[in-house]
Design a protein around this nucleic acid. Structure first.
Length: 492
RNA sequence: GCGCCACUAGCUCAAUGGUAGAGCAGCGGACUCUUAAUCCGUUGGCUGAAGGUUCAAAUCCUUCGUGGCGCACCA
């Protein structure tokens, strides 16, 4: 990382030369009047002749991303935060004594310029520079202009370089920002309040996952980075809020893959006096709105296919979905037959798995990859969902759905269990599973049960994996492409 | 955690056991409308690391490191 090479040395020399000539290579402040995209928008409509007749004086700052020298004149492109580039034209005639200073500018430097707009012979909108200033000297060279930066490791480790040279990366993160904003707007317009609940939990709850452990010195207690905000958000329902949401990080101490980063962003929202069926329609509306707002279209390309967010979406019960993939009904209700069936097909199961878990394995193997267009799968076995409310007409099932898009789980929602006695019993059952070796079983949370004992209104709640949603809406095939700084092993 | 693949100049890539190369960038020079500018000249390397085989290793073998993809775990 501390390596020096010839290129860095040459640039360092130029930096010293600037200092020697009384030009601070790291200037603090400059007044700028506009940005590249604004210039294009404001002046792009004028012809060469029109431009020469109107007042077009501007000042702008940006990174030099290309440079072409002609002896007594030079062209460069400046790229700024708007993501656009604007060509600038330096001439000895206008810059006089300052012109030789251009020798000390490299591609990568950030400069500020003043000038007037004109169009070149090839009709490109260009700034004729009347004055310029080096604002920040780059000591390291940028990757090559034509092939850019391709090495994925460097792209992730040095995302700043990736962002400078790969415009589509900037675009992805701009869409990510729009997605989150669209969701916030959608929820806020409907009366939801955004809240923040703890990241550090004494009892990691709300999901089946392995947590990260940390320690608070002054309190002398172990704490866990949260695996889900669910139990805190439901405490807020008890407290009297009826529409709340949180968009924030969750942390799970598990493997890393194209679909998993140890920290990831989750939306959870809760609405009182509604059930999971209400949330299906709500989700259709929210995500089709989000797709349209963030990408400009309700149908988005993903890989070789196209995902159509236009409602209504398919709805299949968990058992229907299994039936459709050739899983006989007898297996769905008979543990022994299920075990046998699974073994014959080589689906991996572990000893002691509950019937529900076995069905879930079958589902992941046979059904999940086939759910390409947005599809709700509803009514899950109760043992898979210790925080969801049972169906009134079938105590073995819960009022829960998951949303699948492009073969991936995007959302998980249910009518929230608000019966403290049932909740306590389900925690006890999880505790038993934990003692039998299920490391991901839920922990007992006595305070949460106590909260339910004060009565929580009936409510429906949902979690949406934001990173995965962003993947689909930006046609990204690795979660690392939608997280600015994905988790990697440290260098060296 | 397991398997497969990759790692060569600042960047993008060649070189398949026989003298480590190209393009771009850089440096020196020419050039006042270029935009992958052009033209002339030129610098740049412990081939991811360490061992081994061989007269000879970027190339074959072993171990390690980092990354990618797949599997496992999971959202």
């Amino acid at each position: 990382m501390d390596e020096t090479n010839e290129l860095i040395e040459q640039r360092s020399k130029k930096l010293e030369e600037l200092r020697a000539k009384n030009h601070n290579p790291f200037t603090q402040k400059i007044d700028i009047s506009t940005c590249a995209s604004e210039v294009i928008e404001q002046y792009g409509k004028y012809t060469k002749e029109e431009l020469s007749k109107i007042e077009t004086k501007i000042s702008i700052a940006g990174r030099v991303v290309s440079y072409r020298n002609f002896g007594k004149a030079s062209f460069a492109h400046l790229q700024d935060a708007s993501g656009e580039k604007i060509q600038v034209y330096f001439t000895k005639e206008l810059l006089k004594d300052k012109f030789p200073l251009l020798k000390l500018i490299d591609v990568g430097d950030i400069i500020g310029i003043q000038g007037r707009l004109f169009r070149t012979k090839t009709d490109e909108l260009t700034v004729e520079v009347t004055d310029f200033k080096i604002l920040s000297k780059a000591l390291r060279p940028l990757p090559e202009k034509w092939h850019g930066l391709k090495d994925v490791e460097t792209r992730y480790r040095q995302r700043y370089v990736d962002l400078i040279v790969n415009p589509e990366v900037r675009k992805t993160f701009s869409v990510r920002s729009k997605i989150i904003k669209a969701i916030r707007d959608f929820l806020e317009v409907r009366g939801f309040i955004e809240v923040e609940t703890p990241m550090m939990h004494p009892i990691p709850g709300g999901a089946a996952a392995k947590p990260f452990k940390t320690h608070h010195n002054a309190l002398n207690i172990d704490l866990y980075l949260r695996i889900a905000p669910e139990l805190y958000l439901k405490r807020l329902l008890v407290g009297g809020y009826d529409k709340i949401f949180e968009i924030n990080k969750n942390f799970r101490n598990e493997g890393i893959s194209t679909r998993h980063n140890p920290e990831f962003t989750m939306l959870e929202f809760y609405t009182a006096y509604k059930d999971y069926e209400y949330l299906m329609t709500f989700t259709e509306e929210m995500l089709s709105y989000t797709a349209a707002r963030a990408t400009g279209a309700v149908k988005v390309p993903y890989g070789d296919t196209e995902i159509d967010f236009n409602p209504p979406w398919s709805r299949l019960s968990f058992t229907e979905a299994l039936n459709n993939r050739g899983v006989p009904s007898e297996i769905i209700y008979d543990n022994q037959k299920a075990l046998k069936w699974v073994r014959n097909r080589g689906i991996r199961i572990e000893p002691g798995m509950s019937h529900g878990k076995i069905l879930d394995e079958i589902f992941s193997e046979l059904v999940e990859p086939t759910l390409i267009k947005p599809t709700f799968i509803y009514d899950y076995p109760v043992e898979l969902s210790p925080l969801a409310k049972r169906k009134e007409d079938n105590q073995d099932l819960v009022e829960r759905f998951e949303l699948f898009i492009a073969g991936r789980e995007i959302a998980n929602a249910f009518s929230e269990l608000n019966d403290p006695i049932d909740q306590k019993n389900r925690f006890l059952k999880q505790l038993q599973a934990r003692q039998e070796g299920d490391e991901e079983a839920h922990w007992m949370d006595h305070d949460f049960v106590r909260a339910l004992e004060y009565a929580m209104p009936p409510a429906a709640g949902e979690g949406i994996g934001i990173d995965r949603l962003v993947m689909i809406l930006t046609n990204s095939h690795s979660i690392r492409d939608v997280i600015l700084f994905p988790q990697l092993k440290p260098e060296q």
